[in-house]
């Protein structure tokens, strides 16, 4: 076979593979939009479910998911970033550090239901926080941590060593060096990693199943010890537990959920492009 033909076949095959990988994503989005768009209205987004969740809106679930995403970020961001700083800047490369890093990598691969059960036993039962917003946020935060730590570690490691040398040679302390000469330049990577990891956890059902999610709650949470409704769990409930619900309501809920996570992702990507444009090294 001549080499030009081989190349053509290889290219076509690779193109086909790329197409096959994105086709399901596109298909899912198209199906959800086509079936769900008719349910989306101002009322759907701003009112509570009525009539055994067969009609009305999904406002409490949107608010709940928003609270969970925000709460998990508030907890996981400082913890994860500081852990990442320790690993990248302070820890020595020894047995303990390697075990720690291995643990973090493995934590990222733990199934989400395990996080859910962990949250149930530690926060809900042992710490007596009950099924509540705070338990749910803590559980989601723990789930987000490995990605944030890894992103921080990687972002800090990619800052050239010369920045640290210069800063130290000017008489800065190690902490000043990290604070003024390293961290600012690692920020794009850290922010992107955090946003992407939190966008992922907002769509999770299993971690919130036993720790926070309410089947039905006609009002908004009044304190962090209240349960909340959340979009992923609400979607699960209406598509499996409520017979006779209209198709457009379930698809509409799904549409709102993916719009929520996609806009978080988009937000992360916008920040990254914006900050990268300023970066010249």
């Amino acid at each position: 076979m001549n080499s030009k033909l081989t190349q053509k076949i290889a290219f076509s095959f690779l193109f086909l593979c790329a197409l096959i990988t994105i086709a399901p994503v596109l298909l899912i989005v198209v199906i959800i939009v086509v079936n769900g768009i008719s349910a989306i209205s101002w009322d759907f987004l701003t009112t509570s479910p009525t009539n055994g969740m067969r009609s009305g809106g999904i406002f409490p679930a949107i608010v709940g998911t928003f609270y969970l995403a925000a709460g998990a970020t508030v907890i996981s961001l400082p913890l994860g970033v500081m852990g990442g700083i320790y690993l990248s800047e302070y820890s020595k490369d020894n047995f303990f550090t390697r075990i720690l890093k291995l643990g973090i990598v493995n934590l990222a691969g733990v199934p989400s239901i395990v996080y859910g059960l962990f949250g149930l036993s530690l926060f809900v039962i042992y710490l007596k926080l009950g099924a509540s917003l705070v338990s749910g946020c803590l559980t989601l935060a723990i789930m987000a941590l490995p990605a944030i730590i890894t992103a921080t570690d990687a972002a800090l490691s990619s800052v050239p060593q010369s920045f640290r040398e210069v800063s130290l040679s000017l008489g800065a302390t190690k902490w000043q060096t990290i604070r003024h000469a390293v961290l600012p330049h690692a920020l794009p990577g850290i922010i992107t990693g955090t946003v992407l990891s939190n966008a992922r956890i907002t769509g999770e059902t299993a971690p919130i199943l036993f720790t926070v999610a309410a089947f039905y709650l006609p009002h908004l949470p009044g304190s962090v010890l209240d349960q909340v409704m959340a979009l992923p769990y609400h979607l699960y409930v209406i598509s499996t537990q409520i017979p006779g619900i209209s198709k457009s309501t379930t698809y509409g809920t799904a549409l709102v959920l993916i719009a929520f996570t996609l806009s978080l992702n988009l937000f992360g990507i916008i920040i990254r492009t914006h900050l990268r444009r300023q970066k010249k090294w």
Binding site: S162, F163, V166, S169, A181, H185, Q278
Partner: peptide
């Protein structure tokens, strides 16, 4: 003070 081999201003 120290001046390094490669010019290394902060970005």
């Amino acid at each position: 003070g120290m001046v390094f081999q490669r010019p290394n201003p902060f970005p």
